[in-house]
């Protein structure tokens, strides 16, 4: 499948309530010794908009303060959903399982 089929899709919970849109898809690198596979770990859901964070949800970017506050405000309430909590992919929509967990969307800073 092509990733942009999933990006910007609507996200709904098991009861059909709209939670937001897919703002990003998270992958985890795995495989020894240098990571040769990128496996889907989850999706980032943003309740208000699927527009870009412009990088401000990352720990590597928090200045200028005005833009940081503005972007965080626009994307407030964003959360990560694990792959295991995804129930179903449909055209333009992703359904989550009952009892899905909201996780922190912050991307951990990694040593480059």
């Amino acid at each position: 499948m092509i990733l942009s089929d999933v990006l910007r899709s609507e996200v709904v919970d098991a009861a059909g309530h709209r939670l937001g849109r897919v703002a990003d898809v998270r992958f985890r690198l795995e495989g020894p010794p240098s990571a040769s596979r990128a496996r889907m770990a989850g999706i980032i859901v943003s309740p208000r908009t699927s527009a870009s964070f412009l990088g401000y949800e990352r720990s590597t970017l928090d200045r200028p303060v005005i833009l940081d506050r503005l972007l965080r405000f626009i994307h407030r309430g964003s959360f990560l959903v694990d792959w295991e909590d995804i129930h179903r992919f449909e055209d333009g929509r992703v359904r989550l399982r009952k009892g899905y967990e909201r996780r922190s969307a912050t991307l951990p800073s990694d040593d480059e």
């Binding site: 590597t60 200045r63 480059e112």
Partner: peptide, 14 residues
Amino acid sequence: LIVSNDKQYMGEFR
């Protein structure tokens, strides 16, 4: 403006 503040690009030169 944004990228010149990004540590991933700029390291200590933000």
